[in-house]
Simulated assay, not measured.
Amino acid sequence: MTRVVFLLVPGVHLLDLAGPAQVFSTAAGFGHPYALSYVAEQPRITTAQGLPVAADLEWPSLSPEDLIVVPGWRTTGRPGSPGIGGTVLDALRAHHARGGTVASVCAGAEALGRAGLLDGRTCTTHHDVQEELARRHPKAVVVRDVLFTTDDRVITSAGIASGIDLALHLVAVRHGPAVAARVARQMVVYARRNGDQPQDSVMLRHRSHLDDVVHRAQDIVDARFDRPLRLPELAAAVGVGERTLSRHFTRATGLTPLRYQQALRLERAEHLIGHGATVDAAARSVGFEDPRMLRRLRGRRAA
């Protein structure tokens, strides 16, 4: 069981809070247990949208596997308010020192800055308060125009909807990109990426669509990419004809089902080779009967 503690401050933005909470709650519904807690310095918090929210005053016991998330709050061009007490800052520092992960959404980066967790690390926040965050915390490396950053278990996001991207990233790191893609699909959002890096996963790269037939087909291919999978079998499994599946799949992903499977195999093979496997061993591991096919695919990508 992984515990996710949301630290709430007066004026917290609902989407900064609800977006990540929904991601972890959805992942829990898929069998990846998360326990969500809400902590504040007072028992009742009024959000920026006027909704009162109840919170616990006592912090739960946390392990290094657990996560603290600081959602952002309404600002007037300055991330420096509201007041955050020393006990809260001590809790953030202590959790990170024990090996835990801390994250922020939007102006919540200010809390991490006050705790000294941004010093010498890359971070980001909402574009309205980036300059002020950099001024208040000159040892921080504030990165502009990205969705989120991650640096030594300190993760910050740009704000509002990007908190969903941050949470999906954490789910992908902990449980794999296929789980993150499934969560994104359930939430009817795109599985997006960090703005300053290339897409890292074939699974996520080709999940930015809303075609349910194709998502169901991808679920099957993702789970069985290293085994033979014929188009008639795949089409029957999702309840459509072969031509219909091919047309939908190509339109949604830019690839045929076979090319998608090959891309998954190639990505996994490259990972194995990078960790010391021979080309022949990697080819067999990902399902290629003939290693020459893997060599051809690697050659095409390098060309």
Score class of each variant (00 low, 15 high):
Thr150Tyr: 01
Arg251Ala: 15
Asp226Gln: 13
Ala237Trp: 04
Arg144Asp: 04
Ala263Phe: 03
Gly163Glu: 00
Pro177Ala: 13
Val240Pro: 07
Ser208Asp: 09
Asp152Cys: 03
Val240Ile: 13
Gly254Phe: 06
His215Ile: 04
Leu170Val: 09
Asp145Thr: 04
Val142Thr: 14
Val213Tyr: 04
Leu168Gly: 05
Arg182Thr: 14
His209Glu: 10
His206Ala: 10
Ser157Trp: 00
Asn194Tyr: 00
Arg207Ser: 15
Phe148Ile: 02
Val179Asp: 03
Glu233Pro: 05
Arg192Pro: 01
Val221Arg: 09
Arg185Ser: 09
Arg192Val: 02
His169Cys: 01
Ile160Asp: 00
Leu204Ile: 12
Ala172Cys: 05
Thr156Leu: 00
Leu266Gly: 06
Arg153Tyr: 04
Leu234Val: 10
Asp165Asn: 08
His175Ile: 05
Thr150Pro: 01
Ala178Lys: 07
Ala158Pro: 03
Ala217Met: 04
Arg185Met: 08
Arg259His: 12
Val202Ser: 05
Val141Thr: 14
His215Trp: 06
Met203Gly: 02
Val143Asp: 00
Ala180Cys: 09
Leu264Asn: 05
Arg265Asp: 05
Met187Thr: 08
Ile160Tyr: 01
Tyr190Pro: 01
Leu210Thr: 14
Arg265Glu: 05
Pro257Arg: 10
Val179His: 05
Ile220Trp: 04
Leu170Gly: 00
His169Arg: 06
Gly176Ile: 05
Ser246Tyr: 04
Val238His: 10
Tyr260Lys: 11
Leu231Asp: 11
Ala181Met: 06
Leu245Asn: 11
Pro177Phe: 06
Thr250Lys: 15
Asp211Cys: 11
Leu245Arg: 11
Leu245His: 09
Arg227Pro: 03
Leu168Met: 12
Leu264Tyr: 05
Ser162Cys: 10
Val238Cys: 08
Thr150Val: 13
Gln218Ala: 12
His215Thr: 09
Gln197Ile: 04
His206Lys: 09
Val188Arg: 15
Arg259Asn: 12
Asp152Gln: 15
Ala263Arg: 12
Gly254Ala: 10
Gln262Trp: 03
Asp212Phe: 04
Glu242Met: 08
Gln261Leu: 08
Ala217Arg: 08
Met187Leu: 15
